[in-house]
Design a binder for these strands. Structure first.
Lengths: 180, 180
DNA sequence: GAACAGCTGTCCGATGCCGGACACCGTGAT
DNA sequence: ATCACGGTGTCCGGCATCGGACAGCTGTTC
Protein backbone atom coordinates (compact mmCIF):
# COMPACT_ATOMS: atom_id res chain seq x y z
CA UNK A 1 0.00 0.00 0.00
CA UNK A 2 1.18 3.45 -0.88
CA UNK A 3 1.50 6.05 1.81
CA UNK A 4 -2.04 6.86 2.91
CA UNK A 5 -3.72 10.13 2.17
CA UNK A 6 -4.11 12.61 4.97
CA UNK A 7 -7.69 13.78 4.97
CA UNK A 8 -9.48 16.39 7.01
CA UNK A 9 -12.98 15.22 7.87
CA UNK A 10 -15.51 17.69 9.18
CA UNK A 11 -18.49 15.78 10.53
CA UNK A 12 -20.47 16.46 13.65
CA UNK A 13 -22.00 13.01 13.95
CA UNK A 14 -19.33 10.84 15.53
CA UNK A 15 -21.04 7.61 14.47
CA UNK A 16 -20.93 8.70 10.84
CA UNK A 17 -17.35 9.79 11.29
CA UNK A 18 -16.39 6.35 12.55
CA UNK A 19 -18.15 4.71 9.63
CA UNK A 20 -16.18 6.89 7.25
CA UNK A 21 -12.95 6.12 9.04
CA UNK A 22 -13.71 2.44 8.59
CA UNK A 23 -14.57 2.87 4.93
CA UNK A 24 -11.31 4.65 4.27
CA UNK A 25 -9.02 2.70 6.55
CA UNK A 26 -7.18 1.19 3.61
CA UNK A 27 -6.22 4.42 1.95
CA UNK A 28 -6.37 7.30 4.36
CA UNK A 29 -5.74 8.54 7.82
CA UNK A 30 -8.26 11.10 8.99
CA UNK A 31 -8.24 14.08 11.26
CA UNK A 32 -11.77 14.59 12.47
CA UNK A 33 -13.22 17.95 13.39
CA UNK A 34 -16.72 17.83 14.86
CA UNK A 35 -17.26 21.55 14.64
CA UNK A 36 -16.24 23.76 11.73
CA UNK A 37 -15.70 26.57 14.22
CA UNK A 38 -12.41 24.93 15.23
CA UNK A 39 -11.05 25.42 11.77
CA UNK A 40 -8.81 28.40 12.43
CA UNK A 41 -7.12 26.45 15.21
CA UNK A 42 -5.81 23.90 12.75
CA UNK A 43 -2.88 25.67 11.12
CA UNK A 44 -1.26 23.04 8.95
CA UNK A 45 -3.68 22.69 6.04
CA UNK A 46 -0.78 22.06 3.76
CA UNK A 47 -0.35 18.60 5.22
CA UNK A 48 -3.80 17.46 4.08
CA UNK A 49 -4.43 15.89 0.71
CA UNK A 50 -8.16 16.61 0.67
CA UNK A 51 -11.07 17.71 2.85
CA UNK A 52 -14.29 15.76 3.29
CA UNK A 53 -17.01 18.01 4.49
CA UNK A 54 -20.44 17.12 5.75
CA UNK A 55 -23.09 19.67 4.98
CA UNK A 56 -23.97 19.69 8.68
CA UNK A 57 -27.49 20.95 8.39
CA UNK A 58 -28.38 22.79 11.52
CA UNK A 59 -31.81 22.08 13.04
CA UNK A 60 -32.98 25.59 12.23
CA UNK A 61 -31.74 25.87 8.67
CA UNK A 62 -32.15 23.45 5.85
CA UNK A 63 -30.49 25.53 3.17
CA UNK A 64 -27.01 24.25 3.89
CA UNK A 65 -25.68 27.63 4.83
CA UNK A 66 -23.35 26.21 7.45
CA UNK A 67 -21.74 23.83 5.00
CA UNK A 68 -21.35 26.46 2.30
CA UNK A 69 -19.73 28.87 4.69
CA UNK A 70 -17.33 26.19 5.76
CA UNK A 71 -16.32 25.77 2.13
CA UNK A 72 -15.53 29.47 2.03
CA UNK A 73 -13.44 29.28 5.14
CA UNK A 74 -11.52 26.24 4.02
CA UNK A 75 -10.75 27.83 0.69
CA UNK A 76 -9.68 31.05 2.32
CA UNK A 77 -7.26 29.07 4.46
CA UNK A 78 -5.89 26.97 1.60
CA UNK A 79 -7.29 27.44 -1.91
CA UNK A 80 -5.33 24.48 -3.23
CA UNK A 81 -7.05 21.95 -0.96
CA UNK A 82 -9.75 20.02 -2.84
CA UNK A 83 -13.06 19.73 -1.00
CA UNK A 84 -15.48 16.82 -1.28
CA UNK A 85 -18.99 17.50 -0.02
CA UNK A 86 -21.14 14.85 1.60
CA UNK A 87 -24.81 15.45 2.30
CA UNK A 88 -28.12 13.82 3.08
CA UNK A 89 -30.18 16.56 1.56
CA UNK A 90 -29.47 16.41 -2.10
CA UNK A 91 -31.09 19.46 -3.60
CA UNK A 92 -29.69 20.48 -6.95
CA UNK A 93 -29.55 24.09 -5.81
CA UNK A 94 -27.20 23.23 -2.96
CA UNK A 95 -24.97 21.09 -5.14
CA UNK A 96 -24.71 23.91 -7.66
CA UNK A 97 -23.90 26.43 -4.98
CA UNK A 98 -21.27 24.16 -3.49
CA UNK A 99 -19.47 23.85 -6.82
CA UNK A 100 -19.66 27.56 -7.44
CA UNK A 101 -17.96 28.15 -4.13
CA UNK A 102 -15.16 25.84 -5.04
CA UNK A 103 -16.08 22.33 -3.94
CA UNK A 104 -14.57 19.74 -6.24
CA UNK A 105 -17.04 16.90 -5.74
CA UNK A 106 -20.43 16.22 -4.22
CA UNK A 107 -21.63 12.91 -2.81
CA UNK A 108 -24.94 11.85 -1.35
CA UNK A 109 -25.56 9.95 1.86
CA UNK A 110 -25.84 7.07 2.10
CA UNK A 111 -22.62 6.70 0.24
CA UNK A 112 -21.08 3.75 -1.51
CA UNK A 113 -17.68 3.05 -0.08
CA UNK A 114 -16.02 2.49 -3.43
CA UNK A 115 -17.36 5.76 -4.76
CA UNK A 116 -16.16 7.57 -1.67
CA UNK A 117 -12.70 6.11 -2.12
CA UNK A 118 -12.66 7.09 -5.80
CA UNK A 119 -13.80 10.59 -5.00
CA UNK A 120 -11.10 11.09 -2.40
CA UNK A 121 -8.42 9.70 -4.66
CA UNK A 122 -9.50 12.16 -7.34
CA UNK A 123 -9.62 14.99 -4.83
CA UNK A 124 -6.14 14.20 -3.59
CA UNK A 125 -4.85 14.16 -7.15
CA UNK A 126 -6.49 17.52 -7.76
CA UNK A 127 -4.94 18.99 -4.64
CA UNK A 128 -1.57 17.73 -5.77
CA UNK A 129 -1.93 19.33 -9.19
CA UNK A 130 -3.02 22.63 -7.70
CA UNK A 131 -0.16 22.64 -5.22
CA UNK A 132 2.28 21.87 -7.98
CA UNK A 133 1.14 24.71 -10.15
CA UNK A 134 0.98 27.11 -7.21
CA UNK A 135 4.56 26.30 -6.24
CA UNK A 136 6.07 26.63 -9.70
CA UNK A 137 9.25 28.59 -10.03
CA UNK A 138 9.29 31.45 -12.53
CA UNK A 139 11.40 29.28 -14.78
CA UNK A 140 8.81 26.50 -14.78
CA UNK A 141 5.97 28.97 -15.26
CA UNK A 142 7.72 30.43 -18.22
CA UNK A 143 8.25 27.01 -19.66
CA UNK A 144 4.59 26.10 -19.33
CA UNK A 145 3.46 29.41 -20.75
CA UNK A 146 5.73 28.96 -23.75
CA UNK A 147 4.51 25.42 -24.34
CA UNK A 148 0.89 26.56 -24.23
CA UNK A 149 1.53 29.51 -26.50
CA UNK A 150 3.30 27.32 -29.04
CA UNK A 151 0.45 24.83 -28.94
CA UNK A 152 -2.15 27.56 -29.36
CA UNK A 153 -0.31 29.04 -32.31
CA UNK A 154 0.22 25.49 -33.54
CA UNK A 155 3.88 25.85 -34.20
CA UNK A 156 3.88 29.36 -35.63
CA UNK A 157 6.80 30.89 -33.80
CA UNK A 158 6.10 34.46 -34.77
CA UNK A 159 2.53 34.38 -33.48
CA UNK A 160 3.52 32.65 -30.28
CA UNK A 161 6.20 35.25 -29.67
CA UNK A 162 3.73 38.08 -30.21
CA UNK A 163 1.22 36.48 -27.85
CA UNK A 164 3.87 36.18 -25.16
CA UNK A 165 5.03 39.74 -25.66
CA UNK A 166 8.45 38.69 -26.89
CA UNK A 167 10.46 39.36 -29.98
CA UNK A 168 10.99 36.35 -32.15
CA UNK A 169 14.69 35.92 -31.40
CA UNK A 170 13.93 36.10 -27.70
CA UNK A 171 11.45 33.25 -28.06
CA UNK A 172 14.03 31.20 -29.96
CA UNK A 173 16.49 31.64 -27.16
CA UNK A 174 13.98 30.61 -24.53
CA UNK A 175 12.84 27.59 -26.48
CA UNK A 176 16.45 26.57 -26.71
CA UNK A 177 17.06 27.23 -23.04
CA UNK A 178 14.11 25.11 -21.93
CA UNK A 179 14.89 22.36 -24.36
CA UNK A 180 11.64 22.43 -26.35
CA UNK B 1 -27.21 49.79 -22.81
CA UNK B 2 -23.75 48.34 -22.99
CA UNK B 3 -22.76 46.32 -26.00
CA UNK B 4 -24.73 43.09 -25.80
CA UNK B 5 -23.16 39.76 -25.03
CA UNK B 6 -22.71 37.31 -27.83
CA UNK B 7 -24.02 33.98 -26.68
CA UNK B 8 -24.03 30.57 -28.28
CA UNK B 9 -27.30 28.78 -27.56
CA UNK B 10 -27.56 25.08 -28.20
CA UNK B 11 -31.20 24.08 -27.98
CA UNK B 12 -33.08 21.66 -30.19
CA UNK B 13 -36.55 22.92 -29.33
CA UNK B 14 -37.07 26.04 -31.41
CA UNK B 15 -39.99 27.22 -29.28
CA UNK B 16 -37.78 27.18 -26.19
CA UNK B 17 -35.03 28.86 -28.15
CA UNK B 18 -37.35 31.70 -29.08
CA UNK B 19 -38.48 32.09 -25.48
CA UNK B 20 -34.85 32.36 -24.41
CA UNK B 21 -34.12 34.88 -27.14
CA UNK B 22 -36.99 36.94 -25.83
CA UNK B 23 -35.84 36.67 -22.24
CA UNK B 24 -32.36 37.84 -23.18
CA UNK B 25 -33.22 40.42 -25.80
CA UNK B 26 -32.08 43.26 -23.56
CA UNK B 27 -28.60 41.98 -22.94
CA UNK B 28 -27.56 39.48 -25.55
CA UNK B 29 -27.62 38.49 -29.15
CA UNK B 30 -27.76 34.76 -29.69
CA UNK B 31 -26.51 32.32 -32.24
CA UNK B 32 -28.74 29.29 -32.11
CA UNK B 33 -27.59 25.79 -32.94
CA UNK B 34 -30.33 23.18 -32.94
CA UNK B 35 -27.96 20.26 -33.15
CA UNK B 36 -24.70 19.96 -31.24
CA UNK B 37 -23.32 17.98 -34.17
CA UNK B 38 -22.89 21.23 -36.07
CA UNK B 39 -20.41 22.43 -33.52
CA UNK B 40 -17.21 21.83 -35.43
CA UNK B 41 -18.58 23.88 -38.30
CA UNK B 42 -18.68 26.97 -36.14
CA UNK B 43 -15.07 28.06 -36.01
CA UNK B 44 -15.11 31.40 -34.24
CA UNK B 45 -15.74 30.46 -30.63
CA UNK B 46 -13.58 33.33 -29.55
CA UNK B 47 -16.31 35.75 -30.47
CA UNK B 48 -18.77 34.32 -27.93
CA UNK B 49 -18.97 35.54 -24.38
CA UNK B 50 -20.70 32.42 -23.05
CA UNK B 51 -22.47 29.25 -24.11
CA UNK B 52 -25.96 28.26 -22.98
CA UNK B 53 -26.46 24.58 -23.39
CA UNK B 54 -29.64 22.60 -23.12
CA UNK B 55 -29.13 19.09 -21.84
CA UNK B 56 -31.05 17.86 -24.88
CA UNK B 57 -32.19 14.57 -23.50
CA UNK B 58 -32.62 12.14 -26.33
CA UNK B 59 -35.75 9.99 -26.30
CA UNK B 60 -33.71 6.88 -25.69
CA UNK B 61 -31.41 8.12 -22.95
CA UNK B 62 -32.28 10.00 -19.82
CA UNK B 63 -28.80 10.14 -18.37
CA UNK B 64 -27.85 13.35 -20.12
CA UNK B 65 -25.02 11.78 -22.03
CA UNK B 66 -25.62 13.97 -25.07
CA UNK B 67 -25.39 17.16 -23.05
CA UNK B 68 -22.30 16.07 -21.18
CA UNK B 69 -20.53 15.14 -24.37
CA UNK B 70 -21.38 18.51 -25.79
CA UNK B 71 -19.69 20.11 -22.80
CA UNK B 72 -16.58 18.13 -23.61
CA UNK B 73 -16.63 19.21 -27.22
CA UNK B 74 -17.19 22.85 -26.40
CA UNK B 75 -14.36 22.84 -23.94
CA UNK B 76 -12.07 21.10 -26.34
CA UNK B 77 -12.81 23.81 -28.88
CA UNK B 78 -12.39 26.70 -26.43
CA UNK B 79 -11.56 25.99 -22.80
CA UNK B 80 -11.98 29.61 -21.84
CA UNK B 81 -15.66 29.78 -22.84
CA UNK B 82 -17.93 29.52 -19.79
CA UNK B 83 -20.81 27.09 -20.18
CA UNK B 84 -24.22 27.45 -18.53
CA UNK B 85 -26.33 24.30 -18.47
CA UNK B 86 -30.10 24.33 -18.70
CA UNK B 87 -32.14 21.23 -18.05
CA UNK B 88 -35.59 19.89 -17.25
CA UNK B 89 -34.33 16.82 -15.53
CA UNK B 90 -32.61 18.01 -12.43
CA UNK B 91 -30.88 15.02 -10.97
CA UNK B 92 -28.05 15.86 -8.61
CA UNK B 93 -25.85 13.28 -10.30
CA UNK B 94 -26.13 15.04 -13.63
CA UNK B 95 -25.47 18.45 -12.15
CA UNK B 96 -22.37 17.12 -10.41
CA UNK B 97 -21.11 15.49 -13.58
CA UNK B 98 -21.69 18.68 -15.56
CA UNK B 99 -19.58 20.71 -13.15
CA UNK B 100 -16.84 18.12 -13.12
CA UNK B 101 -16.66 18.35 -16.88
CA UNK B 102 -16.26 22.08 -16.71
CA UNK B 103 -19.69 23.66 -16.79
CA UNK B 104 -19.74 26.89 -14.84
CA UNK B 105 -23.42 27.05 -13.88
CA UNK B 106 -26.50 24.87 -13.88
CA UNK B 107 -30.09 26.08 -14.16
CA UNK B 108 -33.38 24.23 -14.08
CA UNK B 109 -36.29 24.59 -16.47
CA UNK B 110 -38.61 26.30 -16.12
CA UNK B 111 -36.21 29.15 -15.58
CA UNK B 112 -36.72 32.55 -14.06
CA UNK B 113 -35.70 35.20 -16.54
CA UNK B 114 -33.85 37.32 -14.03
CA UNK B 115 -31.85 34.34 -12.84
CA UNK B 116 -31.01 33.43 -16.40
CA UNK B 117 -29.78 36.93 -17.05
CA UNK B 118 -27.70 36.90 -13.89
CA UNK B 119 -26.21 33.54 -14.76
CA UNK B 120 -25.21 34.67 -18.22
CA UNK B 121 -23.72 37.89 -16.95
CA UNK B 122 -21.64 35.89 -14.50
CA UNK B 123 -20.66 33.43 -17.21
CA UNK B 124 -19.59 36.22 -19.54
CA UNK B 125 -17.50 37.74 -16.76
CA UNK B 126 -15.88 34.39 -16.13
CA UNK B 127 -15.09 33.94 -19.80
CA UNK B 128 -13.52 37.35 -19.83
CA UNK B 129 -11.33 36.57 -16.85
CA UNK B 130 -10.22 33.28 -18.33
CA UNK B 131 -9.44 34.87 -21.67
CA UNK B 132 -7.46 37.59 -19.95
CA UNK B 133 -5.33 35.18 -17.99
CA UNK B 134 -4.84 32.92 -21.00
CA UNK B 135 -3.60 35.84 -23.09
CA UNK B 136 -1.20 37.26 -20.55
CA UNK B 137 2.24 38.21 -21.74
CA UNK B 138 5.21 36.72 -19.97
CA UNK B 139 5.76 40.06 -18.32
CA UNK B 140 2.23 40.12 -16.88
CA UNK B 141 2.48 36.51 -15.80
CA UNK B 142 5.67 37.25 -14.00
CA UNK B 143 4.09 40.18 -12.28
CA UNK B 144 1.14 38.14 -11.08
CA UNK B 145 3.36 35.31 -9.92
CA UNK B 146 5.50 37.72 -7.95
CA UNK B 147 2.48 39.37 -6.35
CA UNK B 148 1.10 35.99 -5.31
CA UNK B 149 4.42 34.80 -3.99
CA UNK B 150 4.87 37.97 -1.94
CA UNK B 151 1.38 37.61 -0.54
CA UNK B 152 1.92 33.97 0.34
CA UNK B 153 5.18 34.76 2.09
CA UNK B 154 3.43 37.72 3.63
CA UNK B 155 6.11 40.20 2.81
CA UNK B 156 9.15 38.05 3.52
CA UNK B 157 11.29 38.78 0.50
CA UNK B 158 13.77 36.00 1.04
CA UNK B 159 11.10 33.32 1.20
CA UNK B 160 9.26 34.69 -1.80
CA UNK B 161 12.47 34.73 -3.78
CA UNK B 162 13.22 31.13 -2.85
CA UNK B 163 9.70 30.04 -3.79
CA UNK B 164 10.06 31.69 -7.18
CA UNK B 165 13.45 30.16 -7.77
CA UNK B 166 15.22 33.52 -7.74
CA UNK B 167 18.06 35.00 -5.79
CA UNK B 168 17.05 37.78 -3.50
CA UNK B 169 18.65 40.62 -5.47
CA UNK B 170 16.93 39.34 -8.59
CA UNK B 171 13.56 39.58 -6.87
CA UNK B 172 14.35 43.11 -5.71
CA UNK B 173 15.08 44.14 -9.26
CA UNK B 174 11.89 42.61 -10.57
CA UNK B 175 9.77 44.17 -7.84
CA UNK B 176 11.28 47.48 -8.80
CA UNK B 177 10.71 46.87 -12.49
CA UNK B 178 7.04 46.03 -12.05
CA UNK B 179 6.47 48.85 -9.65
CA UNK B 180 5.34 46.80 -6.63
C1' DG C 1 26.28 42.27 26.26
C1' DA C 2 28.22 39.46 22.96
C1' DA C 3 27.48 36.24 19.71
C1' DC C 4 24.23 34.61 16.59
C1' DA C 5 20.51 34.02 13.15
C1' DG C 6 17.64 35.90 9.84
C1' DC C 7 16.36 39.34 7.67
C1' DT C 8 16.78 43.88 4.53
C1' DG C 9 18.77 46.94 1.14
C1' DT C 10 22.64 48.08 -2.12
C1' DC C 11 26.92 47.68 -4.94
C1' DC C 12 29.71 46.12 -8.92
C1' DG C 13 32.22 43.36 -12.42
C1' DA C 14 31.14 39.40 -15.33
C1' DT C 15 27.82 37.29 -17.98
C1' DG C 16 24.13 36.54 -20.87
C1' DC C 17 20.12 38.33 -22.96
C1' DC C 18 18.40 41.91 -25.96
C1' DG C 19 16.33 43.02 -30.58
C1' DG C 20 17.45 45.02 -35.15
C1' DA C 21 19.30 43.25 -39.17
C1' DC C 22 20.37 39.84 -42.62
C1' DA C 23 19.96 35.70 -45.64
C1' DC C 24 16.93 32.38 -46.98
C1' DC C 25 12.73 29.85 -48.41
C1' DG C 26 8.03 28.58 -50.15
C1' DT C 27 3.53 30.42 -51.78
C1' DG C 28 0.26 33.27 -54.22
C1' DA C 29 -0.77 37.27 -57.00
C1' DT C 30 0.58 40.36 -60.89
C1' DA D 1 9.18 35.38 -64.12
C1' DT D 2 9.02 38.31 -60.62
C1' DC D 3 7.59 40.56 -56.77
C1' DA D 4 5.53 40.85 -52.17
C1' DC D 5 4.66 38.46 -48.22
C1' DG D 6 5.06 35.87 -44.16
C1' DG D 7 7.44 32.85 -42.32
C1' DT D 8 12.18 30.64 -40.52
C1' DG D 9 16.91 30.49 -38.47
C1' DT D 10 21.22 33.14 -37.06
C1' DC D 11 24.56 36.89 -35.92
C1' DC D 12 26.56 40.55 -33.03
C1' DG D 13 27.41 44.96 -30.35
C1' DG D 14 25.19 47.18 -26.48
C1' DC D 15 23.16 47.10 -22.38
C1' DA D 16 20.49 45.00 -18.59
C1' DT D 17 20.49 41.37 -15.44
C1' DC D 18 23.07 38.26 -12.70
C1' DG D 19 24.47 36.72 -7.93
C1' DG D 20 28.22 37.04 -4.50
C1' DA D 21 29.55 40.17 -1.14
C1' DC D 22 29.05 43.80 2.25
C1' DA D 23 26.84 46.72 5.78
C1' DG D 24 23.11 47.40 8.82
C1' DC D 25 19.06 46.40 11.66
C1' DT D 26 16.27 43.49 15.01
C1' DG D 27 15.36 39.99 17.79
C1' DT D 28 16.79 35.68 20.57
C1' DT D 29 20.06 32.78 23.15
C1' DC D 30 23.49 31.86 26.50
Amino acid sequence: MKTPYRILLIENDTAVAQAIRLALREIAELDILTDPAELHASPSFHSYDAALLDMNFQPDQRDGRAGLETIDRLRAADPSLAIVMLTVFGGVAIAVEAFKRGASDFLLKPWRNDRLVDALRAAAALTKRQRASAAMSLEEMERHAIERALARADGNISHAAAALGLTRPALYRRIEKHGL
